[in-house]
Write a protein that binds this DNA or RNA. Structure first.
Lengths: 188, 188
DNA sequence: ATACTGAGGCTAACAACGTTAGCTACCCGA
DNA sequence: TCGGGTAGCTAACGTTGTTAGCCTCAGTAT
């Protein structure tokens, strides 16, 4: 029985205007994609000019960093609720299913959070590990957990980019991955 | 016994100056990364001004497209030579090993070729399939092949972005993936 | 009351990016 | 000799993130 109830690390809360900025950034990002998320556009949306944003954040990267944290926390949350209480053997498929659904639900946010290097120095300590822990809980062994995580990330990335040959049945691809890893999880 | 000897699709050759441009683009890309590959920089390197590049290519994307084709062909080549003559069961690990080595050998080129949507309309017909075919040859079934390819792509992407926790033993991660998929390859 | 100080907005501007328009020199075939 | 294409150039446009410097207003200390 998997106990996935460990609480997420606490982020220090943002003051009012900063929180508005991040919320707006997320809306723009999700609604119109990464290209639409510019400082000027963000300013427009908030009724201010782009340079004023720098009174609240050091730059665009700092705003995006908060969104990355949100994405990591929500992913961790989703994965946990998908596997909590299950036996490890039967948890692989729900884990992968939840990963895919969460990513496809917020595609641009997922890309933002997973593309390019993670700015670990700015991140709230522990969020990265906390978000990835479900893979370890299910697979029982770090390298296998990383392999499964990588496969999930690879499949999502390729799907989001429309990289699979047109007409591919992705459900079956995910099933193939799940059953390949499923047989090997938690071997002692 | 895998017969991986099918010939690559032929690209129509580039005229002299165009070939120089692409070659230079590749050098700059690999030596200094994607950010360094700008039209002005490319012009400098070739002793001309950025707008003159438009006499040879429609734009930056057109130059990159040729590089993408090169990357796909070289990947297909590497994968083929890694698995040719092997029995399918024992080919999974060499396949993955070759994938990783090729990608890490030309990291920026790999990223260029795999990031974002594939501009299929501009691509020489057949290169995409040809590059991916080794996965099908080894795994025997399309969805399993796609799963393995996805896992390889995911692991490479995360490695290139420094996304694995510091100190991770990636060799073991790849081995874990190989053995998970190895047991299931070519089941009828 | 007066002065100071910080927060939070503004405009103007910079450098770099991809790209376009328009001009010019050259070579080659009719 | 006369076009016409090829391949270069400069100037410029519209974006992008970002910085510098100014202004206004609230709150507080003197």
């Amino acid at each position: 029985m998997i106990d996935a109830s460990s609480p997420p690390p606490e982020r220090e809360p943002l003051s009012g205007r900063a929180a508005e900025i991040v919320a707006t950034a997320r809306v723009v990002l999700e609604a119109e994609g990464a290209d639409a998320l510019t400082m000027r556009r963000l300013g427009d949306e908030l009724g201010m000019k782009a340079p004023s944003l720098y009174k609240h954040f050091d730059g665009k990267a700092a705003i995006e960093l908060v969104l990355v944290e949100e994405a990591l926390l929500e992913m961790g949350e989703a994965l946990r609720s998908a596997i909590d209480g299950l036996r490890t053997v039967e948890a692989v498929e729900p884990l992968l299913r939840a990963y895919r659904r969460t990513a496809l639900d917020h595609p641009s946010l997922y890309r933002l959070a997973t593309l390019g290097p993670l700015p670990r120095e700015g991140l709230t300590p522990g969020v990265e590990d906390w978000a990835g822990e479900p893979f370890l809980l299910v697979m029982g062994e770090p390298h296998l957990a990383q392999a499964v995580w990588s496969a999930a990330h690879g499949m999502v990335s390729l799907e989001l980019d429309g990289r699979y040959p047109p007409g591919s049945d992705l459900d079956r691809t995910w099933t193939a991955a799940a059953s390949a890893f499923g047989r090997n999880g938690n071997v002692r």
